[in-house]
């Protein structure tokens, strides 16, 4: 087991370096230039060639790409992600203060989606082809085919602005600090509800279908017949004997959904003005803030690699056939 984990971590490290090389090259190949950005922030529409060249030297942009990358990698190994081109703050600070908001979002979305997907999947498999299965299948397929940004727009306009049930912008109200504890809780719900739902609904659809399909496959197995032969109720057969076997592949799926949730955060956080790393990435891209972009790439890659590794390890721990192999 230790050997296996060590091997996986080593491979993950190699993958990580590969990802950073590609991102490094792509961001620098994209049109635009942090030096020009910095000048336009200063209000000047033109600048002397000399000033431009000095800025490029300041940012090390006059060096060849390979040397820039080597220098960056050398600092990152010491966990120094540099300072933002945009405001000169330490990149680790900028990312660190925004990471919790996004992690809450991703975690909330996964928990919420499972809370819906598991009962729906169980109920659908219980009477496959029945009324509930057909209706739920249709609704979920329809939901799944609505892009997140369309759903977000709809929710912001209708539920957020017109009906004013939920607050479509930001993490909390400006008056948050003055609220009582129940008031704070209510305020958080008002702010979390729409964006978490936007994150979760495609996951619900996907996971419910996955659970249903897996359950149906498991229900055809011999050991389900054995469970019925024992005299167990259909409920016990489904929830205990069948579901436990469905849980194993579900662990892997959930592990892979977390990264995809992170990917969706760029658009959604921007739309909901959510102070997370997705919004930060969007801003950093438009500002050509290379150090921030690179740091977020590393964070995202580490999360993805860790989630896959964790999914595999949990699977191994949950499946006695792997555990004792």
């Amino acid at each position: 087991m230790v050997r296996y984990v060590a091997k996986r971590l080593l491979l993950a490290g190699v993958t990580l370096v590969g990802i950073t090389i590609v991102t490094f090259a792509v961001t620098r190949l994209a049109p635009g230039d942090p030096a020009l950005e910095a000048v336009s922030r200063g209000g000047a529409s033109t600048m002397s060639a000399e000033a431009y060249a000095r800025l490029r030297t300041y940012y090390d942009l006059d060096q060849p790409l390979s040397r820039q990358y080597a220098a960056w990698l050398g600092r990152v190994v010491r966990l120094d992600f540099g300072r933002s081109f945009h405001d000169g703050r330490r990149v680790t600070d900028k990312v660190g203060e925004r990471l919790p908001a996004t992690l809450c979002l991703a975690g909330g979305a996964v928990v919420l989606s499972l809370a819906f997907a598991i009962p729906i999947g169980l109920a659908s498999a219980r009477r496959a082809g029945g009324v509930f299965d057909t209706v739920a299948g249709g609704v979920l397929a329809a939901l799944h085919s609505v892009p997140r940004y369309v759903m977000a727009m709809l929710l912001i306009v209708v539920v957020g602005v017109h009906l004013d049930w939920f607050s479509p912008y930001g993490l909390r109200s400006d008056s948050f600090e003055d609220m009582s504890y129940p008031g704070k809780a209510a305020d958080l719900v008002r702010h979390f509800a729409l964006i978490v739902f936007c994150f979760a609904y495609p996951l619900i659809a996907y996971q419910a279908r996955f659970i249903r399909g897996n359950l149906l496959e498991v229900l055809g197995q011999d050991y389900i017949r054995t469970a019925r032969a024992k005299g167990l109720s259909e409920r016990a057969v489904l929830h205990r004997h069948a579901f436990r076997n469905t849980l194993l592949p579900l662990i892997t799926v959930v592990g892979l959904l977390v990264p995809s949730a992170l990917g969706g955060s760029v658009i959604l956080e921007t739309m909901f003005q959510w102070p997370g790393i997705g919004q930060l990435l969007f801003q950093a891209m438009t500002q050509r803030d290379y150090p921030v972009v690179m740091a977020l790439t590393v964070v995202a890659a580490v999360v993805v690699l860790l989630c896959t590794l964790l999914a595999d390890l949990t699977y191994a721990l949950a499946d006695p056939r792997v555990r004792y192999a």
Binding site: Q221, D222, Y223, R225, T226, A227, H241, R244, N245, L248, A318, D319, P320, R321
Partner: peptide, 9 residues
């Protein structure tokens, strides 16, 4: 082998 549930002792 198939009639016993693999995930329970």
């Amino acid at each position: 082998a198939a009639a016993l549930n693999p995930v329970f002792t």
